[in-house]
Amino acid sequence: MTTTRDETGRPDRPTVTELRLSAFRTHRGTAIALGPLTLVTGPSGSGKSSVLEAFEALARLGSGAALGSVFRDPAGCVPERAGADAQGRRGFRVGCTVDGPAGPVRLDLAVQAEPELRIVGERLTSRGQTLLSTALRDPGRSTVQAAWHTAGTVPVTRAPLPDDRLGTALLPLRVAGKTEGQRQVLAAAEQVVLALRSVFPCDPQPQHMREPVAPLRGADGGRLRRGCDNLAEVLLRTRTECAIRHGRLVAAARVGCQGPVTGLTTEELADGTLRAVLARGAHLHGTPVGRLGEGELRYLALALVLLTGPGVLAVDPVAEVPGAMQTLTVLADGLDRALDPRQARELLTLAAEMCARGHLRLLAAVGDAAGAREAGATVVDLRP
């Protein structure tokens, strides 16, 4: 399945198409165009991880998270050598563009890191028109003054919003949608929020993937967590739900894992926990994945992420929006970390295949982008 477009030529599913790090850590004036498969490369210290960090921060704010829970070290996000103003204030700026049925919508955010963490400015624009703007008017209050487009008898509505939340994410609760202007604001805000909430940051942790896992019950059962420590639980689910994709995962394991691999299964231990096992041909007993090396474990986890979807990965679902109208974006820092060239090539091939189908989008930082453009990837080189 590929991304479809409506009669106006716009993508029918909200998608983040540009990430801006106007002033964030080592970045100043950085704008990164995002394709279905985007790889960020460059030497150590060039800011690869910062790109993914900024995207994840926007995603969490779009999901309604408080500013303090998103930026644990806000002073570290301020560009080096950035001086303070007369009031001793220092900060950083990030933003993104989301394309979709409402057209390209820009979100730009200014955050004060010192002397206290707060949002001091936010702007939501579409087709050159400002739909929402906020500004810090009274430093003694924990609010910003917001103004959003109304286009009714009153052209602009003004009201205070909390200075520790993304105003765009609050608009659906504040805007009535009675006028054409209000409906325009709502469509733009909902498009941005939908795209940002459909993000899965992936960071496989082999040291936590070696132990058997106790299956969870309820809504979170069988959903892959960020560190992929519950890989066995998710394998149990995917084997029964989609034999085709599970077969593709086994084929990937056959390429990226040592020795003959004929299957990938799970077994329940005496205490009720599960462990994942590589089947080895005619051997009576397979190899528990806990015995694999770090590279093999990361490879298996990343392949599983690429072959699953929003219903399996632990993302914040938008229940009122059909899955067909959502695009999942996976963030992977160090996609090729601990992988040998053969594993890295196979993972890139798999990523290109799934992204081309419109199954997901991938933004990843890599140490080596060799062959990426040939695979159809957008490569962002941060070398100075």
Rank of each mutant, 00 (worst) to 15 (best):
Arg72Cys: 10
Ala251Lys: 12
Ala187Met: 05
Ala195Glu: 05
Glu80Arg: 14
Gln184Val: 12
Leu194Gln: 09
Asp336Leu: 02
Arg60Gly: 08
Ala195Arg: 06
Pro341Gln: 00
Val40Phe: 10
Ala75Ser: 13
Leu124Ile: 00
Asp316Val: 12
Asp336Thr: 06
Gln258Trp: 10
Ser50Glu: 14
Leu186Gly: 13
Cys228Ser: 07
Gln191Ala: 11
Ala301Ile: 07
Ala147Pro: 12
Ala65Ile: 01
Val192Leu: 03
Ser63Asn: 04
Thr378Leu: 01
Leu306Met: 07
Leu313Cys: 09
Thr15Asp: 02
Thr265Glu: 11
Pro79Glu: 11
Arg60Asn: 10
Gln145Glu: 15
Pro215Cys: 01
Thr97Gly: 03
Arg254Trp: 09
Pro79Ala: 11
Glu233Tyr: 05
Val277Ala: 08
Pro11Ala: 01
Val305Leu: 04
Arg5Trp: 01
Pro162Val: 05
Gly64Tyr: 02
Pro172Phe: 00
Ala251Pro: 11
Leu347Asn: 02
Gly181Arg: 05
Asp99Lys: 00
Val318Ile: 11
Glu346Tyr: 03
Glu190Lys: 09
Ala270Met: 10
Arg28Cys: 10
Ala84Asn: 11
Ala187Arg: 13
Val111Gln: 11
Ser198Phe: 02
Arg298Phe: 12
Thr238Arg: 07
Glu80Trp: 08
Leu347Lys: 01
Arg183Ser: 06
Thr15His: 02
His285Val: 15
Val315Arg: 02
